[in-house]
């Protein structure tokens, strides 16, 4: 691993530690719960950053894994009465879904716009299906699926093995920050590994990578599954501070994730995290303005980002800084 990578990982860990130690002591409960939502969104952005920015797979339905993680968590936790086994199951379900969907797509040699169409459609199918599960006949074990209303009684995390020790919102915030930092570090390590470098090589030139003897399908499937797993983790955390409902699958969220990554910078990991936080903050703030619809602002930002700054915020800023450092004013 390069020295730069090591520095970035240590910085991320320190930053996370400071945030996790300080914020729960100073922030009000409402702010803290909102912050947890932001962190879960950042994890979701990270999952897309990995498969789009590095795998070159533009997944229009990353929310499918986000929603599946949330639903799997809520259903299992309601059935078991606690979250010890719910978390691993809720990670396994979206990962397996990504594995199955990825196998279907990559081994069928489907590419580009067709992958976009299929992933978008899958999340739409899940959205439609989850919406249609209103009524008493729709339940999995003890857990009613609740149709449009979702599962309002989504249980909170508890200390593994101890059903009575439910985590407080403060503790859940700390868990979320630790998850974000671990996912970031994990992604860094994956990308620094042999596997990660081959994934990037395939993004750069699939035909050449295949001629060198790498099975592109396997590597794409691998990174897609990791992305699904991380997306599912974001769903679990989101379920813990809001609750699961069909909107988790909605086109609105899938669009937002893409905007976060695009604005933050495709091909970076830190950019999308910042993008998610900034834009989520902006959306929340715009939602409080009278007569302004946040969609209008988000949409204009995405258009401007594509037209004016196709590399995204972080790479754009880094380029400007680099030029300044070299003494050539932009």
């Amino acid at each position: 691993m390069s020295r730069r990578n090591a520095i970035e990982i240590v910085t991320a860990a320190l930053l996370a530690a400071v945030v996790a130690l300080v914020l729960p002591r100073v922030a009000e409960l409402f702010v803290l719960i909102n912050a947890t939502v932001f962190v879960s969104m950042a994890i979701l952005a990270l999952s897309l950053a990995l498969i789009w920015g590095f795998g070159g797979i533009l997944c229009f339905g990353q929310t499918a894994f986000f929603g599946l993680g949330g639903y799997a968590y809520a259903v299992t936790a309601l059935n078991l009465g606690e979250s010890t086994y719910a978390v691993p199951i809720a990670l396994a379900v979206p990962a397996l879904a990504a594995l199955a969907l990825g196998y279907f797509m990559f081994y069928g040699r489907i590419s580009d716009v067709y992958i976009g169409a299929i992933t978008l459609t899958v999340s739409l199918i899940l959205f439609n299906f989850a919406n249609s599960t209103a009524g008493d006949q729709w339940h999995i074990g003890e857990a009613p699926l609740g149709g449009f209303n979702g599962i309002p009684s989504t249980p909170q995390l508890n200390i593994p093995g101890d059903p009575d020790a439910t985590l407080s919102p403060q503790a859940i915030f700390v868990v979320a920050v630790i998850c974000l930092a671990s996912c970031y570090i994990l992604s860094k390590l994956v990308l620094a590994s042999r596997f990660g470098r081959i994934v990037v090589a395939i993004r750069e030139n699939e035909a050449r990578a295949e001629l060198l003897g790498y099975d592109a399908r396997r590597y794409k499937l691998g990174i897609f599954t990791v992305g699904g797993l991380i997306g599912g983790l974001a769903g679990i955390l989101f379920a813990n501070c809001v609750f699961v409902s069909p909107t988790m699958f909605s086109l609105f969220y899938s669009g937002q994730v893409i905007i976060w990554v695009m604005v933050g910078g495709v091909g970076t990991l830190f950019g999308p995290i910042v993008g998610a936080m900034l834009l989520q903050g902006l959306t929340t703030w715009a939602g409080t303005l009278p007569g302004i619809n946040p969609n209008a602002i988000l949409g204009v930002i995405l258009m401007l980002a594509v037209l004016l700054m196709p590399t995204g915020l972080l790479p754009g800023a880094t380029a400007v800084l680099g030029r300044l450092r070299r003494g050539i004013a932009p």
Partner: peptide, 9 residues
């Protein structure tokens, strides 16, 4: 897609 969101808004 951005245009779509903006128009909805």
């Amino acid at each position: 897609w951005g245009l779509s969101l903006a128009l909805i808004g």
